[in-house]
Design a protein around this nucleic acid. Structure first.
Lengths: 347, 347
DNA sequence: TTGTATGCGTTATCAC
DNA sequence: GTGATAACGCATACAA
């Protein structure tokens, strides 16, 4: 059995230096002569000393993280926020504070979003999480925050051309490929393999990636995408699009909806004879979708784990601030296939 | 913005009692007059005071958790252990120790397992995690540990008829149902729907549940299970079973293998003409399976998240010991569908 | 039963 | 640069 863990005192007396020196050696921002730091770090390794994060946190100042959510009107974004808040709650005892600002696309403007970020800057928050913004104007703002020593994390969009420290995303290539493979599974014994895709908003880089990945998959799994319809993340547009699709292509065999805006498609399928026979792969999981998954109109849907995306963003940003520790790998959620058989795990 | 968090001192001076009284009020095992405790707890609620877990942990004794793994010779169990150790590592700073004992079915005996548990008892460990044991003799041992104040958690098997505090499992009903639905998806346009199941070991309660769930699913999704073969978790037996299956039923249309012992089936499929055309749903994800998932012999496999099962078991036991906090819900992993499209997320 | 004093392992402050 | 020493927020042995 392991003996008592070495403390800062143990190493200090071992080396005949003060505990302050030990402490400083482990903080890169702390001033300490180079030789001394190296000596301490080296013998700590041999000696088996590691600073206790808990005790360390206790004596440190509180960190504050600002969160800006510029949400589309989707349950999706509120799940991300739930995840962020859950992580905050789990870390509350570790001297971390969180200032959440929720804005809505449509209701609120870009200017209001910028105002929030300026407020974060003025308050000199330690970290900032930005959710759901991909437009060009955000880049400068991120860089400005970053230049003032604020660590910025983005959720849902990568923005790798900005100075954000990391981002928490879905793996859109995998999602598109999964959708394609699911369609091909559902089309297995079927000779008619005409497939139609409904996308959320072609302007969004996310949907562009999904379209590309799905098209690659269609080639790989050998079925035809006869058309891609843009629903502009708008139910009315989606309703018209699905009607148009079936009038242009009455013999559709499979459908992939890459956005949560898939209810209009479900409703249309209810009105036609062979609605349940069509292969239909949807996106996301939310209450309005449950009945359609259960009764077989939707064969499978791909869940992006928005809760986890939010949780991970906050949690990793905390560790970056406290432990100066960058996430080892890019933060990509692992998309999940949800069918009626396992829907119970997601409601 | 939130002001400084209330501390034990704030509440103590507010109530004109000592900080010790406050501290005791929040520990059910601590002696304190009933009225005082109730007063403190009530005003703490109003006042907005909550004990800081971190500071609390710092001043408490170290807990020790003993882990006994009585493993089948499967990569599966080592993944569970990886999860346990990862949780231990994440909690190392919180004054928790872990004593892991790995035994192997075949190599080690039941008596050796009992010896380990006796050692845990003698050492008066605070908690014990038991992995991979379902036989009757374990019940008494669990109860004995429990009667001595040791919190026992089981992994992979529930053992609800023992005094274990909780268990971390896969959701076998969901897995069986998912396997059935996947088969039905793959059999969609196909008229021949003859399906065969290969199970790990009919004696194990796990495989019994999987068989039942899969059969229920077959009825629901309308395909026929023509036979269930027991592979006894043994590759040789599995090799014979698959040959037997195809000689008895040359027109098999779909296969479900409920155990990780599915490589012999893959190898058999390689030797026959229509191997890739057959629907094949497997279990678990491990390196030997990768090529068969990629090249299409395996259409989908169901991943049980063994890593997470182990992680959660340790993590929740820690919180039970430290916070006297029972898990809100039963600890069931959420099984995942893995196909070639998303295999990259699991390797 | 209740309060006081000490310790938990670290960082921050302030001298030197 | 470096080293004492006071926090940080709480639990508990001990004294009352």
């Amino acid at each position: 059995m392991p003996q008592r863990r070495k403390t800062i005192y143990d190493l200090a007396s071992e080396l005949n230096v003060s505990i302050a020196a030990i402490s400083r050696a482990f903080n890169p921002n702390s001033k300490l002569s180079k030789e001394k730091r190296e000596l301490i770090l080296a013998t700590a390794e041999k000696y088996g000393y590691k600073p206790n994060k808990m005790a360390s946190r206790l004596s440190m100042d509180t960190f504050t993280i600002g969160v800006l959510n510029f949400s589309y009107i989707k349950p999706f974004y509120s799940e991300i926020i739930d995840g962020v808040m859950a992580a905050y709650n789990d870390l509350k005892d570790y001297k971390i504070d969180c200032d959440l600002h929720n804005l809505q696309r449509g209701e609120n403007t870009k200017e209001e979003a910028i105002e929030v970020l300026n407020y974060f800057l003025e308050k000199k928050y330690n970290g900032v999480i930005i959710i759901g913004i991909y437009e060009g104007w955000i880049i400068d703002k991120i860089n400005q925050l970053s230049d003032n020593g604020i660590k910025v994390v983005t959720v849902q969009y990568d923005l790798s051309n900005s100075k954000r420290v990391f981002s928490s995303l879905s793996n859109y290539n995998v999602i598109g490929d999964m959708a394609a493979q699911l369609c091909s599974m559902l089309l297995r014994g079927v000779t008619n393999r005409k497939t139609v895709m409904f996308t959320g908003n072609k302007v969004s880089p996310i949907h562009q990636m999904l379209i590309e990945a799905f098209c690659r998959g269609a080639k790989k799994y050998n079925f035809d995408i006869v058309e891609i319809y843009d629903t502009q993340d708008n139910p009315k547009v989606a309703t018209e699009a699905v009607a148009k699709a079936f009038s242009e292509h009455p013999d559709i065999a499979a459908i992939y909806a890459s956005s949560a805006n898939s209810l209009p498609i479900c409703r249309y399928l209810e009105t036609i004879e062979n609605g349940k026979q069509l292969a239909f792969v949807a996106s996301d999981v939310f209450p309005d979708l449950y009945p359609y998954i259960e009764n077989g109109y939707i064969d499978a849907t791909i869940y992006q784990e928005p809760y986890k995306m939010g949780y991970v963003a906050f949690d990793k940003l905390y560790h970056l601030l406290v432990d100066c520790e960058m996430p080892a790998r890019p933060l990509m959620s692992t998309p999940r296939v949800v069918m009626s058989a396992n829907l119970s795990d997601y409601r």
